[in-house]
Design a protein around this nucleic acid. Structure first.
Lengths: 237, 237
DNA sequence: GCAAAAGTGTTCGGTATACACCCATGC
DNA sequence: GCATGGGTGTATACCGAACACTTTTGC
């Protein structure tokens, strides 16, 4: 392994700290996770999340961004956020590894080049996964589902511009059930998350009204519905 | 010598993993955090969160529970949950320390014995704190505030049985602003979080109707308001 | 009876969903 | 004109906040 300055001490309490990311993308109606197939034991041939060891001079978010860019060639991560720590003593056989897990998102129109051992897999039907990486994938998906409800996190799954119908497909894929285009547009518009571009797409081959193009107002995560019950008397502002 | 374990090791690049907890309690109308005063450099005399080094045979939650019970004599933690990882390379001078931060809660009627160097401080006006512990405290408080809105986490702050007025005081302390007793009862009751015990407390010295005693239905964390917009068609009936 | 505190009824505004209806295009 | 898909208007249900009102006690 490179970066061995953090590994030359195999003290009991001094664990190697690793970072891992469940990188998700909506594609063809389903949500997919990026996995690479291990070539060596332990868990040879099983599929693992991208990640690696934390270096001495970086924090965990810097580390996961570096490793995703370096090792899996995902430059266009639209969003990265910390999930939680996975630290069961036996989660990786052979040595102690404490992992900080991340959620990463890639827009649906981006198809990054990935190494030969790496591929997208439907989150619903993952292949045989290594270590506790299926649990981490599940946590990533759960976080995404929750944040779709009360933030504008859809911006990280959608292309820069899109029709409501396309966005509906993305939300349906991410959530795992059908959402209504009507309400999707209404809710996101009311919250100010969607902005019309004024332009439209040509109608489809079977006719129909040409759809309008929208974009997300804010290209960064924001909480659009503070869902604050027991909020201060002066209301939410 | 208590509490010296987070600083007594000056490894160069080696990542010691530490666990820290912002332990919060509502008391006399304010929210307090448990801190201990450092006796030695670095950050001598400054106040720090309880915690310590992760052992080889435990996961992070086991570790923080052990350290809180062992070192700060808090047996009656009503709730513990992971916040996030703090990992800036220079967050602790002298050596690399990656910390997993936790939120811990203690019921308002519990006043655990703590060592001489340890005390409760109002979260609003903390003393001079060590390292990044004020940020961690802020994260703990933010998590608690958010979860008060959509979970039954109040169970962890309240006594086993309480009046609505007492509960109102606890929520107000935790949130930092006044909440109305009327709506507090209504919201928690509608969600099924509150159960009447059937008994009442005697009225106060200045008269008034004797208040009914309530308890939380579920003595564990549950999400009582899934705030699920874009929910499946078969929604919450 | 009166004051005080607890608890309930009612109104109001806001939000999400469902569904009917209108709009704009290809053929 | 007609089918097709996109978008809007309207009705309904529910939730939380505010506030008036009733209940139950001590004095």
């Amino acid at each position: 392994m490179p970066h061995s300055n953090t590994a030359d001490r195999a003290d009991k309490g001094d664990a190697a700290h690793e970072v891992l990311a469940g990188v998700l993308r909506a594609h063809e109606g389903r949500l997919h996770v990026l996995l690479w197939q291990r070539a060596q034991p332990p868990h040879e041939h099983r599929w693992a999340l991208p990640g690696g060891r934390l270096r001495a001079d970086e924090d965990v978010e810097t580390s996961i961004r570096r490793q995703l860019a370096e090792k899996v060639d995902v430059h266009k991560l639209s969003h990265v956020e910390q999930l939680s720590v996975f630290s069961a003593p036996d989660r990786v056989p052979g040595h102690r590894a404490v992992a900080t897990a991340f959620l990463g998102l890639v827009p649906s129109d981006v198809d990054p080049e990935v190494p030969a051992d790496t591929a997208w897999h439907p989150v619903d039907e993952p292949p045989a996964t290594a270590f506790d990486h299926e649990r981490i994938t599940h946590a990533a998906r759960a976080r995404l589902s929750a944040k779709l409800s009360y933030t504008n996190i859809g911006f990280a799954l959608a292309p820069a511009e899109f029709t409501i119908s396309e966005l509906r497909g993305i939300y349906s894929a991410a959530l795992g059930y059908e959402v209504a285009a009507t309400n999707l547009q209404r809710v996101l518009t009311r919250r100010g998350a969607l902005s019309p571009t004024g332009r439209t797409m040509p109608a489809g081959p079977s006719g129909g009204r040409p759809p309008a193009l929208f974009r997300f107002t804010n290209p960064g995560l924001e909480v659009t519905d503070p869902f604050a019950v027991f909020r201060p008397p002066t209301g939410r502002g």
